[in-house]
Design a protein around this nucleic acid. Structure first.
Lengths: 216, 216
DNA sequence: GCCAATAAATGAACATGTTCATTTATGCAA
DNA sequence: TTGCATAAATGAACATGTTCATTTATTGGC
């Protein structure tokens, strides 16, 4: 080839790295399309390899196993969703509004592909082994951390009033979100407004408490 | 055989049914032992068949697939645990105590085999297809129903005070239980007291609410 | 430009879940 | 008891996830 010493579009990365990036991208595209079309269980690794234009074995240099392919696909998506979520929180608004706003982008996205999301929710359970796992788990942690900040802010300015550690409250809210998500996706055709309304309802209950109120 | 017309120990069931029951039992035992020893993923259906003393194909007349074998094993256990749980709720005790008492047998059991429980929690996600699925889902529903009763009773005698539908509260509590269970099992060596304490903590928060309290 | 060292890609071979046509066992009527 | 109908059991055949020894591509030093 003639371009051996002509600087590439990005001169800092070599041919090897560019090849990898491109292949990773093709595999992601192929896996995403197939998981959408036929679901996780219905998709074979051979199909993914064929559609991506790589050999079967190549898949497993980018993901530890089939499950890991699901997260290879989802991790980019999660980053996007998180950016969107963090950017759309109305400052100073009622706490429950903030939490609902935070999860809004996730519901929007999940409502579009409930099947894929169900598979994801199954496979992410105790998912720690794959090479894509650390990035996925870090993403979740950063969501919980953001909720903790919201709790801290809300306690600071009196929108919330609790003696409990914000970290604990944040984990509890994330847990509630997850169980609501599962209930929502267990339904036939989960609608975004319905899902958010259900989430809102449990948040309101959490904030109000089950009483009875102690004398102060 | 000479006993063709001699009444069996249980005369109402025929040979066919007794054979099935015995085989089912052997398969359950074998699957349970292997899942415990080597985990769900580490166990092959061939091993299960071999240890149970049946042919490979026979497994699939008792369970729809490997996942279903997990529930074939667990369903009996769930029934036991539920009986135990329902029987150990202190009447008239503080609501949180009752809920903790309800889940106590589950934590006791799960602490003994955290690996098996992790597999179970993964596989039960959106588990509706297998022949063992309906029985499993009914079991869960009956737990939620029992919680609903506890909520109703507690509201009736003033231990709780909430305008929300008991059914909704019950689902919320079950959801919290599940997310706490997952967090607990994500740890290295989950201890029963630790798990119950964490559950208790979130229940107390739910009951107290996150405030601030409205003027009455 | 050439060569050795290293990384990546490959697909045949293997392991394991699942199906299904065939065989065996059981129930039941004559 | 015999024979037919039905249920259950069987394991070879197949489908699909995963491994790994081999091949191919890239890099960096000379």
């Amino acid at each position: 080839m003639a371009d051996t010493d002509i600087p590439d579009s990005d001169a800092t990365v070599g041919q090897r790295e560019r090849n990898k990036a491109e292949k990773r991208h093709r595999i992601e595209e192929a896996a995403l399309a197939l998981f959408r079309e036929k679901g996780y269980d219905g998709t074979t690794t051979r199909e993914i390899a064929r559609r991506a234009g790589v050999a079967l074995g190549t898949l497993f240099t980018y993901a530890s196993d089939k499950r890991d392919l699901l997260f290879l696909v989802y991790n980019d998506r999660q980053d996007e969703l998180r950016r969107e979520a963090f950017g759309s929180i109305p400052e100073g608004a009622p706490f429950a509004d903030q939490i609902v706003a935070l999860f809004d982008p996730f519901y929007t996205h999940f409502a579009k592909e409930p099947g894929f999301t169900r598979d994801l929710l199954r496979e992410l359970t105790f998912y720690t082994d794959g090479v894509q796992a650390p990035r996925f788990q870090e993403g979740r942690l950063s969501i919980v951390a953001r909720i903790r900040e919201l709790v801290e802010d809300a306690v600071a300015d009196g929108r919330l009033s609790t003696p409990e550690a914000p970290r604990l409250i944040a984990e509890m809210i994330f847990g509630l979100y997850q169980s609501e998500l599962r209930r929502w996706l267990a339904g036939d055709k989960p609608s975004k407004p319905g899902g958010l309304a259900a989430l809102r309802r449990v948040l309101d209950i959490l904030i109000a408490g089950l009483g009875p109120r102690d004398a102060d």
